[in-house]
Computed example of a mutant assay.
Amino acid sequence: MTTNTRNTQSTDGTQGARSARSTQTILVTSASGKTGRRVAERLGARGATVRAGSRTGTTPFDWESPATWGPALRGADAAYVAYYPDLAAPGAVEAMRTFGRLAAESGVRRVTLLSGRGEPEAVVAEEALREAAAGVELTVVRASFFAQNFSEGLLAEGVAEGALVFPAGDTAEPFIDADDLADVVVETLTADGHAGRVHEVTGPRPVSFAEVAAEVSRASGRPVFYQAMSATEYAGFLTGFGLPEPEAEWLAALFASLLDGHNASTTDGVKRILGREPRAFAAFATETWGGAAT
């Protein structure tokens, strides 16, 4: 997701041919997270045997404990990789290198990696996984910011209290609905034709954070205001809520770099893969907050 990133998604405009492996076993990492939970639910509905990997789940899996990775991968046909906290984070490259080697050694045939759009450091981690997992069918899905970050993520508490605070200035972002992203991931895991591809997925149009606040206000019937901050101010804001200073500074710098305007364009990745348009932020807001007014 660098400024001059090429969109290397599928160009044939059609979904891949459905895989014949209807009974495959698929490891879903970070299965209690925003995307992992949705991917696991959809795979289960399609009849796959899902290993929901998490620190407290039935399949123990912890990105901070590499000893859990091999057992979770053993016997799996495919895996969804959602690295925590982010592929651009320190340590991600080595984690992807180790995970990829274990996946190949375990006989995993297909891996879909969630990556961030416009993150140069994430691209390095992608390459580390690709090199280590030689022989494994790898698909990379680079996503824009999730719409659900405002309802069940980092920004949800502030939104609920009426104050959306973020170092985004007046930059617009084509927020993607996590449900659309999960559908894309499931398609890449269960259908042929995606191996070696990099799919960039976004929402249908760029939306500014001020517009986000306005849409939430409209849907919920209560005022929500956007307050722009510098990266330095936002880091201080996060430390005030107990986040360690190094982590707060890293997060603030990452957000500011991603929201400098270079990710404001949209892609047609969702339509190319799923054959339909992605959901607009306004529709997400209506569904999420439409019954919140009192």
Rank of each mutant, 00 (worst) to 15 (best):
A264C: 04
P174I: 02
E161H: 12
A231P: 04
R276N: 10
G291Q: 12
G261I: 03
D183R: 14
E64I: 01
W63Q: 06
M96G: 01
A219D: 02
G242W: 06
V186N: 03
A282H: 12
H194V: 05
A160D: 12
F175W: 11
E215V: 01
R18I: 14
G236P: 04
S65G: 02
I273Y: 05
R205H: 13
S65V: 15
P71G: 06
G16C: 03
T68D: 07
S10M: 12
D192Q: 03
R18M: 14
A182P: 13
F150E: 01
A95G: 10
V207A: 07
T286P: 08
V207M: 06
G135M: 10
A52E: 15
E233R: 00
A156K: 07
L102T: 11
L43T: 06
P60F: 08
R55L: 04
D177I: 07
Q15W: 09
P167A: 03
A163F: 06
G275C: 05
T25G: 07
A82H: 08
Y80G: 06
A76H: 03
G57D: 04
A235H: 05
V136W: 04
F241Y: 14
A264W: 01
G70S: 14
T5A: 14
E200R: 01
A264S: 15
G236M: 06
T98Q: 12
T68S: 10
R109C: 02
R55K: 12
V212Q: 07
T267R: 05
E126Y: 00
T267F: 03
G116Q: 11
A82K: 00
R55D: 06
T49E: 15
E126D: 15
G107H: 09
E187H: 03
T286C: 03
R205V: 10
G193S: 04
Y80W: 12
P204V: 01
V216G: 05
R6E: 13
R117L: 15
E161Y: 02
R21K: 15
Q24C: 06
R46E: 15
R74Y: 09
G107Y: 07
A88F: 08
A178G: 12
T68C: 02
S220T: 04
D260L: 08
R46Q: 14
P244D: 06
M1I: 07
F241T: 11
